[in-house]
Amino acid sequence: MTTAYTDRTKLRTGAYADERPLETRRAIYEYRRPRLDLVGEVVHRLRDIPAGVVADVGCGSGAYTKALRERRSDLTVLAVDFSPGMVGHAGGPGFVADAMALPLAEDSCSAVLALHMLYHVPDPAAAVAEFGRVLRPDGSCLIIGNGADDKIEFIRLWRQALRDVLGGDPEGDIFGSSILRFGDMDALAREVFPSVERVEYFGGTIVPDPAPVIAFIDSTRHLNDHPEFDAVRDRAAEIVTETVAREGAFTFTNHLGVIRGLPC
């Protein structure tokens, strides 16, 4: 079933038409405790890959692409995304492509990155199979996804705002509650790669100002495809403002995992 998280047309023309919504969501993690340099973690975990081609599939605004280009001159890092806006922002070399049908030769990549993107793929198993196909026998595939409890406070907030605006108990996907999670990604990786390593990161984001939280919510407009988005967003903003005034901050859970798949 296609959702707001997997509708490629809406994602390409809305949530990822340009870098601004994604960068707004990334900005809130400056308040994460303990601090986590996830870009640095990814670069570190690829420290032993051989020189060659790296495909950053679902590159988004290019944070990982650019960091690898800066720190590993022996790599040709390709910015790959289904959105021309994202590929353009990440910069060349790169191309627009579907993760389920990569225009890359078998055994051609030293590494494939799939970082916070598999939940946007209609058939994530097909995408992971593609990663395995294009990966060299001595290469690595890195996948990042969120745990089931990641940002659960936002799900509760959105559910409460929906209830206040529309009445009744809301059903269905609530603020991305039904997206593919880290544990499912791990299972998919184990279907393709003989060896899989995983590490999980736990933390909390403590935001003492309502503005970044409200901006985060607003940046999800195209991911929370609801006809009453504005009214529900406004109610959620009121709840966040009340929470910060009462408790001194809006706090939410961070739980993500990094999977490294090895062909041999």
Rank of each mutant, 00 (worst) to 15 (best):
F229N: 13
R246D: 12
A236Q: 06
R156D: 15
G172V: 00
A215I: 06
I155E: 10
E197N: 05
S195Q: 10
F229Y: 15
R156M: 14
T253G: 04
V240L: 01
L188V: 11
S177D: 10
D218V: 11
A237Y: 11
A161T: 02
D209T: 07
T241F: 02
V240M: 01
A237C: 13
D164R: 12
T251Y: 07
L162G: 01
G176R: 03
I179C: 03
F252T: 10
A187E: 15
D184E: 15
G183S: 15
I217D: 06
F193P: 00
E228I: 00
F216S: 05
A231D: 15
E242Q: 15
V207N: 04
D225V: 13
R198H: 08
S177P: 07
E247D: 13
V192Q: 11
M185Q: 12
P194M: 05
I214M: 07
R163M: 07
F202P: 02
S177Q: 06
F216P: 06
D173T: 01
S195R: 13
A231L: 14
S219W: 03
W158E: 05
T220W: 12
D184H: 09
E228S: 14
R246E: 15
D164W: 03
A249L: 09
S177W: 02
I239D: 08
V232K: 01
E242L: 12
V244W: 08
A161S: 12
R163C: 07
I206Y: 15
S195W: 06
A187P: 04
E171I: 04
G204V: 09
R198W: 05
I214E: 14
R159K: 10
D230M: 09
P208A: 04
E247L: 11
I214Y: 03
R233I: 11
D184T: 11
T205N: 06
R159I: 02
N224K: 06
R159S: 00
V196M: 05
V192M: 09
D209I: 00
P212M: 03
V240N: 04
A215S: 14
D184S: 12
D186E: 12
G168I: 01
A187G: 09
H226E: 08
A211N: 05
G168C: 04
E171K: 01
L188P: 02
V165S: 09
G248W: 07
F216N: 15
T251W: 08
V196L: 07
A189M: 08
D230E: 15
P194E: 04
V196Q: 03
L157H: 04
E171G: 13
V244S: 08
H226M: 10
D234R: 13
